Amino acid sequence: MRDFSQDHEWLSLNTATIRKQLGAEVPLDRIIDQCAALGIRAISPWRDQVHAVGIERIAKQLRAHGMGLSGYCRGGFFPAPDAAGLKAALEDNRRAIDEAKTLDAPCVVLVVGALPGALDGKAHYKDIARARGEVRDGIAASLEYAREVGMPLAIEPLHPMQAAERACINTLEQALDLCDALDPERSGMLGVALDLYHVWWDPKLEQQIARAGRERLLAYHVCDWLTPTRDLLNDRGMMGDGVVELRKIRGWVEAAGFGGFSEVEIFSALDWWQRPGEETLATCIERHRSVV
């Protein structure tokens, strides 16, 4: 297993971690400068942040800093109540793929979606099997275009608590079953984004990480699970503050062939978003060295 104790060469920052600082929204160009000042050499930005500044400007800034991406957030949300909605989702995913290509991302992370309308409190239907079928069809269609342009897609399984409104793919096993069905040749164009917040509890995790192997492990996200958790979406913990066996799981991931970035992704409305970005980043670096 790689030794992270002496540097943070393999630390990436998902920009959600400091997109809010002292309670205020921070533009992506400022976040990039903050990361560059601390020697963080990779980020994973969110599409709305990129759009707010301008993709060409962000691409130029990344090149100027010699900074790369560990992923691009996000595509997905395939299910819809009607044909027009399904078509719109595919078109949006094509745009996400094009944006990722412009930014030279290694993959587009897919939060696949679930019951359409549930995020707004009114699901258009309750048939989760239908949603999973629409996810499969949406990924299959998007994969065709992704192959054309050479942009891998990474399915991110989300914790079952988010099965209704954000993702109806909830275990690594489910995600890999989809990968095997749609990409049986293990081409490297379809894999998974493994976010420990969502999968740490899974009794099959070690087995399924080994099953994924190097070809399927496209992104690796770290944070911690707090006890008690005060908000199931926006109360992720800083690494080392919770109950996740971070180093053990990284051992499994690296034994399976993954050698990329550990991407810190922390949604923390009650804690880390209430602090200066420099403080949060400094803590990310220290914890990356000491506990990840």
Results as ranks from 00 to 15, higher is better:
Leu13Glu: 00
Arg19His: 00
Met67His: 06
Arg214Gly: 09
Tyr125Thr: 09
Glu215Ala: 12
Gln207Phe: 05
Phe77Cys: 02
Glu156Gly: 03
Val222Thr: 10
Arg47Met: 10
Leu110Ala: 00
Phe78Ser: 01
Gly71Pro: 05
Ala96Pro: 00
Ala282Gln: 11
Arg214Val: 12
Ser44Met: 09
Leu86Ala: 13
Glu185Gln: 11
Gly133Asn: 14
Pro116Val: 01
Met161His: 14
Arg41Ser: 07
Gly213Trp: 03
Ala118Gln: 03
Gly66Ser: 07
Leu226Phe: 03
Leu232Val: 12
Trp225His: 12
Glu278Ser: 10
Met151Val: 15
Ala42Asp: 03
Val109Cys: 05
Asp180Phe: 05
Asn170His: 04
Ala42Val: 08
Asn93Gly: 01
Tyr145Ile: 03
Tyr72Ile: 07
Val292His: 10
Glu245Ile: 02
Arg19Met: 12
Met151Ser: 11
Trp252Gly: 04
Gly76Leu: 00
Gly68Gln: 05
Glu134Gln: 13
Gly251Val: 04
Ala163His: 12
Ile169Tyr: 00
Ala52His: 11
Leu69Asp: 03
Asp7Leu: 00
Val292Leu: 15
Thr283Pro: 03
Glu148Leu: 14
Val111Trp: 01
Ile139Arg: 03
Glu215Phe: 11
Asp127His: 01
Asp224Ala: 06
Arg63Ser: 12
Asp104Ala: 12
Ser262Pro: 01
Asp137Val: 05
Gly54Cys: 04
Arg214Ser: 11
Leu158Thr: 04
Gly251Ser: 11
Arg63Phe: 10
Cys284Gln: 13
Ala210Pro: 02
Leu196Cys: 06
Ala219Leu: 11
Leu190Glu: 04
Pro228Arg: 13
Arg275Thr: 10
Glu144Val: 13
Ala88Cys: 09
Ile43Val: 14
Val108Pro: 01
Ile155His: 00
Ile128Phe: 09
Gly121Glu: 00
Gly113Met: 05
Arg94Ile: 07
Asp104Gly: 02
Ile18Arg: 00
Pro45His: 08
Gly71Phe: 08
Phe78Gln: 02
Leu90Asn: 07
Cys223Asp: 10
Arg230Met: 12
Arg57Thr: 09
Gly240Cys: 09
Ile128Gln: 06
Thr17Val: 08
Ser142Asn: 11
Leu232Ile: 14
Glu286Trp: 13
Gly66Ala: 03
Ala181His: 09
Ala219Val: 07
Ala59Val: 13
Arg166Val: 06
Arg41Pro: 03
Arg57Cys: 00
